[in-house]
Each structure stands twice: as structure tokens, then as C-alpha cells.
């Protein structure tokens, strides 16, 4: 992973940025997100996808790139939630959408229909691994959230004592 080389052109990056933003906002519309944060949830999804995409391009492996992508989503969501003063899931639910393993999940069904159970099993494993690594990455970001909360509380306490 270290010393990795990423090769991409400008066009690729642009398409990925714009499309991940649109996809996140599209999902945000279907889950009825509050109007004032719809733009920011799009940016949250965009950040997560770009981290995932760059790591996947650098051949960091499926698990690692998904976990880091979810971690980025969680981190951005926590910061945005602190700033905008609203629940974290407003950002994290749409933000995780681009990372969902949709393509392998469909391939499971496709292979089951064609009667190729070995291929289907392999894909099912892939879906499971991706799902678990997303959850783990997100779990790591809640660690940041907790420590941030503790830090802020201590800051407030100091202010009170200072007075």
C-alpha cells in the first residue's frame, strides 16, 4: 500500500466526483432529507466515494478501500453534524449509498439464475466482506465522534471553572 502509484486522468476524476454527488443527492431526496442539509449530504457521499475510488485505484484491496471510504463518510458526517447541529445519520445514511456493494449483489442473483453455484458463492462472500468492512470503517469513525464529544465537554468545563 505504501509507495503506491495512482494513475488517472482529469476526466475520470471529474466524472466520479460529479456522479457520486448526484447519486447521493438522489438518494437523499428519496429518504426525505431536510432541505437545509441536502447539499452537504451530497458532499459527504462525494468524499467517501473519492477516498474509496482512489484507494481502489491504488490497489489497496477491496476490504481496505471500503473500510477507509466508510471511515471518511463517518468522519465528514460527524464534523458536518457538529457544525450544522443535527443528527449524524442525516449525512451518513445518504453518504454510504455509493459504497453499497450493488454490483456483486446483483451478480449473485444472476449466477444463481444461470445455475452456477460456485460463482454465486464467491460473489456472496464478496458482498459479505464488503458489507462488514463498511460497517467496521464506520465503527472506527464513531470512535472519533466519542473522543470529540469528550474533548468538547472538557473544554466547556474549563470555561466554567475559569469564570
Amino acid at each position: 500500500m505504501l509507495g503506491m502509484q495512482v494513475s488517472f486522468n482529469f476526466w475520470d476524476v471529474l466524472i466520479n466526483l460529479v456522479f457520486s454527488y448526484i447519486a447521493t443527492v438522489g438518494f437523499a431526496l428519496t429518504v426525505n432529507i431536510p432541505h437545509r442539509v441536502i447539499h452537504w449530504s451530497g458532499i459527504c457521499g462525494c468524499a467517501g466515494w473519492m477516498v474509496y475510488w482512489l484507494l481502489a485505484r491504488a490497489e489497496a484491496g477491496r476490504m481496505l478501500s471500503n473500510a477507509f471510504g466508510a471511515f471518511a463518510v463517518g468522519l465528514v458526517a460527524v464534523l458536518l453534524a457538529k457544525w450544522k447541529k443535527c443528527p449524524v445519520i442525516l449525512f451518513s445514511v445518504p453518504g454510504l449509498v455509493p459504497l453499497v456493494p450493488g454490483a456483486p449483489a446483483y451478480m449473485v442473483v444472476r449466477w444463481l439464475i444461470d445455475g452456477e453455484y460456485l460463482g454465486a458463492q464467491q460473489m456472496m462472500m464478496r458482498v459479505a466482506i464488503v458489507t462488514v468492512s463498511i460497517a467496521l470503517g464506520f465503527l472506527l469513525s464513531t470512535l472519533v465522534q466519542e473522543s470529540l464529544n469528550k474533548y468538547l465537554r472538557r473544554l466547556k468545563l474549563k470555561e466554567k471553572l475559569g469564570k
Binding site: F19, I22, A23, V25, G26, F27, A28, L29, T30, G102
Partner: peptide
């Protein structure tokens, strides 16, 4: 929203 989501994804 659903349409743009599925096309871009």
C-alpha cells in the same frame, strides 16, 4: 432523484 441515483451509480 431515484432515476438520477440509478443512472449515476
Amino acid at each position: 432523484g431515484a432515476g438520477s441515483l440509478s443512472a449515476t451509480l
